[in-house]
Design a protein around this nucleic acid. Structure first.
Length: 346
DNA sequence: AAGGCGGGGAT
DNA sequence: ATCCCAGCCTT
């Protein structure tokens, strides 16, 4: 039997019952695909439910503020997805009168929609035979066909896309695409795949050659940078604090945080000297600063390790642009800040 | 072509 | 620790 027939059969027998598989409405499919970019189903599921619940249509999403969208996205990471999702919702609602692009090429014009997502939506919603190539597809195809081209090389990207295109089932492209991905997620896993009970184990090239653990081939990863974050957490006697919006490009764009002193080097010693000086100048009766966490929290991102110290500033000064602490949870923040807020306030 | 962009889960 | 996850965008 053909590769794709076996996979589609396997899919119909083993697929998980997921909410976005119960609809072909492009709004819901689009929403699920954006949420699932670089995100496991288990992690994305609750966010999908929350978005469907709070924004039942593209118009509801379009009419929300970016702060609201980012707040609902909080904790999911890769926040450009949320900003692009919102921008595209406004475009669809207000420029296209709520009508989704009706094919791969039209979908590709949406912000945050690349080859993978356009192929997924076009195949699932419109039966367009565009093959998806995500991390699962790279793994399944590289193993089954024994392809050793690095998946993150220009050559590999084209080679796997072409291979996937020759394999797609033209009668049920959406089911085929989802079948390969589900197969990669559940059966042909990165570590310890269960090849003993695999429906493809009689024809899998990598299994035959005993090189399953070597595939797919991926070129070297980027190295991690260390940065030092000192957050100034103001708490006034009238229960006000200060949050600032990260407007610059880079991590956490448009999310909120406490005033931050960021450095490439550890400035703890300098910081302690200066904050003692500050206490003496301002006067301890109006202003007291203490270190909250004795050991820095190390917040690990995929490409940065943030050594973070929170400094508590108790003060009876009225600051401009301060917010009442009872409103602090309305602001979208990085999970690092959200966790601190839950621990420190009330 | 290379690097930036999150946070959580599996091993 | 290291790798991976229904990738996309900028430089």
């Amino acid at each position: 039997m053909d590769f794709n027939k076996i996979l589609i059969r396997w899919f119909s027998d083993n697929k998980r019952d997921l909410p976005w598989r119960r609809t072909k409405n492009p709004y819901f499919v689009w929403l699920s695909e954006i949420i699932l970019q670089q995100t496991q189903v288990k992690q994305g599921l609750t966010y999908y439910e929350a978005f469907v619940n709070q924004f039942p249509s593209v118009f509801d999403l379009a009419n929300a503020t970016e702060n609201d969208v980012l707040k609902l996205w909080q904790g999911l990471g890769y926040y450009s997805r949320a900003r692009n999702l919102h921008a595209s919702a406004k475009h669809i609602a207000f420029n296209l009168n709520g009508a989704f692009p009706k094919n791969y090429n039209g979908l590709l014009e949406l912000k945050g929609v690349g080859d993978y997502t356009a192929s997924a939506i076009a195949s699932i919603c419109y039966n367009e035979p565009k093959a998806v190539v995500d991390g699962n597809v790279y793994r399944v195809l590289s193993r089954y066909f024994g392809v050793e081209t690095p998946i993150n090389s220009t050559k590999g990207i084209k080679e796997f896309k072409d291979l996937a295109t020759t394999l797609i089932d033209h009668n049920q492209p959406g089911d085929y695409n989802q079948a390969v991905m589900e197969f990669g997620a559940i059966q042909c896993k990165p570590k310890n795949p269960n090849c003993i009970k695999c429906p493809l184990n009689t024809s899998c090239k990598a299994l035959k050659d005993n090189i399953i653990p070597n595939l797919p081939v991926k070129l070297k990863t980027t190295k991690v940078k260390t940065k030092f974050f000192n957050y100034l957490v103001i708490k006034t006697n009238t229960q006000y604090t200060i949050l600032e919006k990260r407007t610059k490009k880079g991590i956490w764009q448009n999310l909120y945080q406490f005033p931050l002193i960021e450095s490439e080097q550890n400035i703890e010693e300098l910081f302690i000297r200066e904050h003692n000086t500050l206490k003496n100048i301002v006067g301890k009766e109006n202003f007291d600063i203490t270190k909250y966490n004795e050991k820095p929290y190390i917040h690990k991102l995929s490409h940065q390790h943030l050594h973070t110290t929170f400094w508590i500033i108790e003060s009876n000064i009225n600051y401009r642009d301060s917010i009442h602490i009872k409103n602090i949870r309305k602001y979208p923040t990085p999970i690092l800040i959200a966790n601190f807020i839950e621990e420190f306030f009330d």
